[in-house]
Write a protein that binds this DNA or RNA. Structure first.
Lengths: 250, 250
DNA sequence: ATTAATTTTATCATTATGTAGGAATTTTAA
DNA sequence: TTAAAATTCCTACATAATGATAAAATTAAT
């Protein structure tokens, strides 16, 4: 299984800093023979994963845009949680975030901004590690014991830095506390001066699938405000999870 | 190059009708051995092109969402044309569309709706054939003679149905007329009772790269209105193309 | 519209890599 | 904690990938 990885490796080249690659540049970067490279690029282009225009090299193909659309419209979480989140963000003049767990990271899948005080850098399509910030940690708190174990060993330092505990027992305790409260708030773990308040979302089988959160400037809010918002967010999230249970996904 | 195609073939299974696939279902559909299939699925999953959750099978992975984001933020067309288009749509209480050419189809990459009278079904991520509708035909009109030839032979019927002419000479003439006017309007080619008014967008090398268009209900507009809007759209598109020329893409 | 230059694809002998089936392991669920 | 299920590993064998070159397609210029 080395060939397939080499094919897909080509996709890894494309980044925000360098979204366009000439054939020669790919050749230099990855070092295939010209005919092999042309073969690879044709396969990826035919699949819509790359596009090419004469004299302008290769860039990411339409398939990514099309499949993002497909994911968007088939995601029951967005359909259910989106409107409620928008309203919540508007009511509280803050930023609303809907995140999903993808293996060991957390991806923003929907966002609504209802304030100019925060420059939200967390739009649909941006991923974060599962360790920092309320929207991530509330997911972490609901992983199965087995999954937490598996995750902890190679990431002990990250857990420690995120103030979740310095050993597995400590981490378990912190996460258990988050579960007991039903919502979770952090300050400045992602952006300084910004508070995040998050609640967990469960899928139709009752497994953790994402988080529902509000992000607001730390200055204006008391811990009492945070508690009130936490309860609100948790209530909304719970309702969504229950609806999801009744109307199973496709 | 048969192996790689089989890998990517798996992605073709995922659709709006069936966004979730169990291993067994894929096995039935494509007929690899179990170990090979697991190997394929692991490769795709490691690459972020698929995700899997226990008991819920496989679905499209986070990479599509992340790369869509990347494409969105690195697309100079969206950056330049987006705001102007939004304003144009608002002013005229209609739907604004920004499309891009991807080989033989046209993809909507940005949309702004400023009316409730049309149910716009053309959001970011939706693709259409290059033959029907103003937003497509205006791109068709600016293909090179060679590309038009190549496209015509296997699609003569489609050209005819789209009323672009019944032979290559006729098609050339229709398209030449569109070029001469600088904008193009069609009625009901995509949605009955809906008028589309489009102008071409050229990249920094002067090649056709997309279209800029407004979509509005046919009832309320006179052909004089259409002409006025056409000139406006063409002017805006021209300005964008010129800006693009000065500020070359990454 | 024709022609020259460039880019892309096809061909084919050689060599390396993927495949399938069962065993071992990991992960989930009870 | 243990049993069940899902996933990955292992190896002999078959098959397809590779790269140099030739042919074709596409672009650019006249």
């Amino acid at each position: 299984m080395q060939r397939h990885e080499r094919l897909i490796q080509i996709l890894d080249l494309f980044s925000q800093e360098k979204p366009n690659w000439e054939l020669e540049e790919i050749h230099t970067a990855l070092g295939h023979s010209k005919s092999t490279l042309y073969r690879y690029l044709k396969t990826l282009t035919d699949a819509g994963l790359l596009t090419t225009f004469p004299g302008r090299g290769y860039s990411l193909g339409s398939r990514f845009v099309e499949f993002d659309y497909l994911i968007r419209v088939t995601d029951p979480l967005i359909r259910l949680a989106g409107p409620v989140l928008t309203q919540l963000a508007e009511t509280n003049a803050c930023v609303g975030l809907l995140c999903r767990r993808y293996s060991d990271k957390v991806l923003c899948v929907f966002q609504h901004t209802a304030t100019t005080k925060i420059h939200s850098s967390y739009e649909r399509g941006k991923a974060r590690p599962i360790f920092r910030g309320a929207a991530s940690q509330v997911i972490l708190a609901h992983l199965s014991a087995y999954q937490l174990n598996r995750l902890y060993t190679p990431n002990a330092a990250a857990f420690s830095e995120a103030r979740l505990g310095d050993d597995l027992a400590g981490v378990r305790q912190s996460l258990s506390a988050i579960r007991a409260v039903g919502w979770h708030a952090t300050e400045g773990q992602v952006t300084p001066g910004v508070v995040g308040i998050a609640a967990p979302l469960f899928d139709e089988r009752g497994d953790i699938t994402g988080s529902y959160s509000l992000t607001l400037p730390a200055g204006n809010v008391t811990s009492e405000d945070i508690r009130t918002l936490g309860v609100t967010v948790a209530g909304a999230a719970q309702e969504i999870s229950q609806t999801l249970k009744k109307a199973p996904a496709s």
